[in-house]
Amino acid sequence: MSTLEELRAVADARRQTCTQIKKMIVTRLDLMIDPEWITDDQPLFGRGLELDSLDVLELYVAIEAEFGVALYDSEMSVFGSVGRLAEHVNPALVEQPA
């Protein structure tokens, strides 16, 4: 059973990546909102953040530049939420805590 401390650390690691992604999205796509207003769970395309196909192309480039991860051939589910994106660019987040 993990302690509160351990869980906080895991949550922090995820939050860091998510925050980084949110800032990148807001800057790259010129959104007029505070990055922290975006939730980890809301959809990014269609409803939610309402990004479209042009935004997605832009994000492919931005993600490769910032995280070194190429998403070009990935499925659209990668953009299902900031959380999903975080798991793709930082696979360490998906490992279960001991």
Binding site: M1, S2, L7, R8, V10, A11, D12, R14, R15, D40, D41, Q42, P43, E75, M76, S77, G80, S81, G83, R84, A86, E87, L93, V94, Q96, P97
Partner: peptide, 29 residues
């Protein structure tokens, strides 16, 4: 500080895991 996916919590004596949305990927995508 605990509202994040990838954590193991306890609900009424049972273990639960927190999840990343969407919890099911729509096939439509």
């Amino acid at each position: 500080e605990l509202a994040a996916a990838g954590l193991r919590l306890t609900v009424a004596d049972a273990e639960v895991s927190t999840l990343t949305s969407p919890y099911v990927t729509p096939r439509s995508w």
